[in-house]
Amino acid sequence: MSSYLAQEVHLARRHEEILSQRSELLQQMETYLGDKKTKKTWQTQAADAAHKRNAALLNDIEAAEKKLQERVHLHPHPNTVKLEMSPCAAEQDSTGCKVPR
């Protein structure tokens, strides 16, 4: 009978050890999942911020491009004006010939 009692005490201790290990593993798992969730949240926020920065930069670039194109149409390069006025003028000027104006 004492061997049954000794086995019962041994099993009770082993059961407590297992429960303690289980509790520790559950806590580690909760910590891991919490860290993982926090990391994912941080990554999502970083990606959203990067997307907003990229969209703002793209808008700035498009605005600058539009402004430059408007400026080119308002003030064309002098050589462009010269060619539009007289397509032969540039050719004759490069050969040294004078074009009557």
Rank of each mutant, 00 (worst) to 15 (best):
residue 65 E to R: 10
residue 20 S to P: 00
residue 18 I to W: 03
residue 20 S to N: 03
residue 55 A to K: 15
residue 59 N to V: 06
residue 60 D to S: 14
residue 64 A to D: 10
residue 63 A to H: 08
residue 43 Q to A: 14
residue 35 D to I: 03
residue 37 K to C: 05
residue 68 L to Q: 07
residue 96 G to L: 02
residue 34 G to S: 13
residue 37 K to D: 05
residue 15 H to M: 09
residue 62 E to G: 00
residue 70 E to F: 06
residue 24 E to S: 07
residue 37 K to R: 14
residue 21 Q to W: 06
residue 51 H to E: 03
residue 9 V to M: 14
residue 57 L to K: 10
residue 50 A to E: 07
residue 100 P to T: 13
residue 55 A to P: 00
residue 10 H to G: 10
residue 7 Q to D: 11
residue 39 K to L: 00
residue 9 V to R: 15
residue 54 N to C: 00
residue 98 K to M: 10
residue 56 A to C: 03
residue 8 E to F: 14
residue 11 L to T: 12
residue 54 N to T: 09
residue 25 L to N: 11
residue 34 G to T: 13
residue 80 T to C: 03
residue 90 A to R: 08
residue 49 A to H: 04
residue 85 M to K: 13
residue 47 A to C: 05
residue 42 W to M: 10
residue 17 E to K: 10
residue 36 K to I: 03
residue 32 Y to N: 09
residue 31 T to D: 07
residue 39 K to P: 00
residue 89 A to D: 06
residue 96 G to C: 07
residue 49 A to P: 00
residue 21 Q to V: 09
residue 99 V to Q: 06
residue 56 A to L: 03
residue 22 R to A: 11
residue 45 Q to S: 02
residue 45 Q to M: 04
residue 64 A to R: 09
residue 34 G to D: 09
residue 60 D to R: 11
residue 60 D to G: 07
residue 6 A to T: 07
residue 40 K to D: 01
residue 48 D to I: 07
residue 50 A to D: 08
residue 75 H to E: 11
residue 21 Q to I: 01
residue 52 K to D: 04
residue 27 Q to S: 10
residue 12 A to N: 04
residue 82 K to I: 08
residue 74 L to Y: 02
residue 97 C to T: 14
residue 40 K to W: 01
residue 77 H to E: 05
residue 29 M to R: 15
residue 74 L to T: 06
residue 8 E to R: 15
residue 46 A to M: 04
residue 31 T to E: 11
residue 69 Q to D: 08
residue 84 E to F: 05
residue 48 D to T: 04
residue 62 E to N: 11
residue 22 R to I: 06
residue 94 S to C: 12
residue 82 K to D: 08
residue 86 S to A: 05
residue 24 E to M: 09
residue 88 C to I: 14
residue 78 P to T: 03
residue 33 L to D: 05
residue 5 L to Q: 14
residue 18 I to K: 07
residue 23 S to E: 12
residue 92 Q to E: 12
residue 69 Q to H: 06
residue 97 C to A: 13
residue 94 S to F: 13
residue 27 Q to P: 01
residue 31 T to A: 07
residue 97 C to N: 14
residue 81 V to F: 03
residue 42 W to I: 10
residue 55 A to T: 09
residue 82 K to M: 12
residue 25 L to K: 15
residue 57 L to I: 12
residue 26 L to A: 11
residue 72 V to E: 01
residue 47 A to Y: 02
residue 25 L to D: 01
residue 58 L to S: 10
residue 6 A to F: 04
residue 20 S to W: 01
residue 87 P to M: 00
residue 81 V to D: 02
residue 101 R to M: 12
residue 8 E to C: 13
residue 25 L to I: 05
residue 69 Q to K: 15
residue 3 S to V: 08
residue 25 L to E: 02
residue 63 A to Y: 08
residue 39 K to V: 01
residue 27 Q to W: 04
residue 101 R to I: 10
residue 81 V to E: 09
residue 36 K to E: 11
residue 10 H to N: 14
residue 24 E to G: 03
residue 95 T to R: 15
residue 53 R to M: 07
residue 29 M to W: 13
residue 48 D to S: 14
residue 93 D to Y: 10
residue 51 H to D: 03
residue 100 P to L: 09
residue 67 K to S: 13
residue 45 Q to D: 00
residue 96 G to Q: 03
residue 83 L to Q: 11
residue 36 K to V: 06
residue 15 H to E: 12
residue 66 K to V: 02
residue 73 H to Q: 08
residue 17 E to S: 10
residue 101 R to W: 13
residue 58 L to G: 01
residue 42 W to C: 04
residue 36 K to F: 04
residue 100 P to K: 15
residue 19 L to F: 00
residue 2 S to P: 02
